[in-house]
Structures are given as structure tokens and as C-alpha cells.
Design a protein around this nucleic acid. Sequence first.
DNA 1: TCTTACACCTT
DNA 2: CAAGGTGTAAG
Length: 406
Amino acid sequence: MYISWMADSRFPRAGTVEKSPEALHITSASDSLTCTKTSIVNMPESTPWSSALPATTFGNTDMEKDFPAVLTFKGVSVVLENNSVWKQFYKCGTEMILTKQGRRMFPYCRYRLTGLDPNQQYSLVLSIVPSGQYRYRWSASRWEVTGRAEHQNQGLIRAFSHHYSPCRGSDWMNSLVSFYKLKLTNNSQDQDGHIILHSMHRYIPRLHIIPVPDGGIMTFTFPQTEFMAVTTYQNFRITQLKINHNPFAKGFREDGNNPRLNRIARETRLVLKPIMSKPARKDEPYVPCIRGKHALGDLVLVAPKQESAATSVAPEVQQGLKVWMSPKARSVTANSSTSTPGSSPRFCKRRKKMNRRWSNFRGRECKTAAASSTVVLSPSLTGAMQPEMDDIEGLLFVSFTSKVKH
DNA sequence: TCTTACACCTT
DNA sequence: CAAGGTGTAAG
């Protein structure tokens, strides 16, 4: 086992990226990495692939497996800091999106380190290695093996060096180590140093703690961080988890945090929740006001045309819940006809498309107080719903048809 | 299956 | 404020 700084003549290989001629070459019994200072690591083909789990157990919720939040090796301990989120995803079968330009992982790998030599310098490197040797497809709500894994082009196998690397053990231990900058891509021509993966293949991240300039590599692998690489989300539950946990996806959330609306949704088993009716008496609670019902019972409701949002909408709605307002209502209530998006040609052109897009499991936030037609979308309770919206006579009807056979 | 333009959001 | 991270619909 040795580690040395060297100008690696094999680097770059075809298809790899080189931003510095100087490379860190590391070899151990189980790992052999070539790592530039610019976050690129090449791993020779001989690198053994770790397979944390048998192919058939991916995302198997029946499996009561113990996912250690902490791993220890040679006195060094690594805590998977966001273990609980990883576990939630794992139970559904974690999926990570690959894009041409590179996509961040969510969840990403976040560790807390202890037991390092405070004065020793370390580099921290994340590699993402194939897990198992199969290719998969999403079929009837589960993953199934469709064949052998695609060959992993040696020159394209990379890893990602943490942007603090290298630094002292004490520095690593004094802060969380997050690989949020790491990006995944399916572009084999990628020139940005992103991790290149194959869609529909399983992978698992590994943390390498590399003492520099010399010392034994320590590799830590948390089985709950295993994931399927995809270009489009396959499992709806994963999409929902992403939306609910990733701050950047907040725009797609319905108010999942509102206990009252959640409770009503559960009790009524409505996919859509109506706005709240005005209480008959002051001390009465707001109650759902259901004006229509879909044949399948999946449905619906509407705000009466004449009622203003101020009086008909429940307090939580007024407090910033997502509220969808019909385009007609928007243009009517808008105070400026020139600066209003709804009146601009471009906006009108796109309006229908936008409504359709945003009608799916979310609403538009209503920022003006007086909405004459408002609908509150509930947290999505059932997955495979297709919304249709029609604005008729000032009443907004929203119905969902279920793709699932009853 | 994968790519793209996009509204909406965080940072 | 501008840059850039989200899932989505459409193709």
C-alpha cells in the first residue's frame, strides 16, 4: 500500500478530464485511485465493486435491516449525519436523477468524523461504485432485473474529492463533511468532473479517508445510501420524498406541514380539499365545503363565485397556504392591467400550459387577498392521479381521474 | 427513454 | 440581487 504525489503519465485517459497535471496516486489492497487536485478520480477496472445488498432486496420495505448510522475502522468513526432521511428514501428505493449538465444528489452524503489524528492531513474522496451487476427497469411499481449491467468504461470512472481536501484532521472533525457539490451525469463526454453513471443501474457511495502524504486509505460504505440512477423518477413515492425534503423543490409542495389540513384529508379521503366554508357562527370551526363530487369519489370542490377569500378561506389558507386561483379570477382581481402577468401576451400564451403543470399536486400561492375562486390542493394522498381543470361560469371545477383501477 | 424549456424556489 | 437547484410537461 502506498500513496504518492506523482505526475501520472496515464492521465488523462480517453474521456477523462484533466485540469492539473499533478495527480495523487493511491493504491491499497482494495482500492486504487488516481486523483487530481481538481476533484477527479480515476479508478482502474480492477477495483472491486462493493455490493451492499443482493439485487433483489433493493428498496424492499419488508426487510428489517439494521442500517448503522456509524461505522468504525482503525479507530476512525464516521457518522452518517442524515441517516434518517437516507433510510426513508432507501425504504422506497432511492433514485437519483442523472442529467447531461450534472445533477446534485438528494439526499447527499453528509458525515461527521471522529478519531482522526488532529494534526494529520487528510483528503476526503467520495466514489460511487456499481452495486451489483445488473440493469433494471421499473415495471408495475417495482424494480426488476432486465439483464447484465452495462460495461463501465474504465476511463470514465471517477470520484469526487471534497472541496476542503486536503486539510487537517482537526478541521475535518470540527465540521460536518457534506458532499452537496457532487453532481451526477449520464454524459460520458462530461468535461466538468461530474460522476458519470449509467441510468437504470444501482450504485453506492463510498467515503475514502486518505491520509496525506502517506498512510492507509480507510473506506466507509453505508448500505442505506445505495440508489438507482435514473433520468426520470420512476417511483412516485420517491418524487414525493424529494419534494418534501429538498428545499429546492419547495415550489412543488402542497402544504404537507399543516396538521389540520392533513387530518381533514385523511378523514375525508379527498384528493383535493375544498376551501373552508365560512362558519355560521363565530366560534364554530371551519369545515370543508364540498360543492361537487366526482363519480369515483376522488374529487373536488369549489369556491362560490361571490364569496371573497377573506371570508371564505380558512385561517391557514390566509396564512400562506398554497391557493390556486383561476386565470379569470386573477385577471379580474389584478389591479394593474399592464403589469399583470395574466394580461401580458406571453403569459396568456403560456397560461393553460402553466395551469396544467402546476395543477398537479400543488397550487399557486395567492398573494392578493381577494380571490373569488380558490381551491386548496391537498397533500397528495394517492399517487397516480391525473387532474383536469375547467373554469366554468366563475366556478372552478377540479376533478381527478385515477389511473388506478378500483 | 431521454432531453429540454420553464416557473418557482433557495442561496 | 443574480445565480443556480428543483420537478414537470411536452416532445
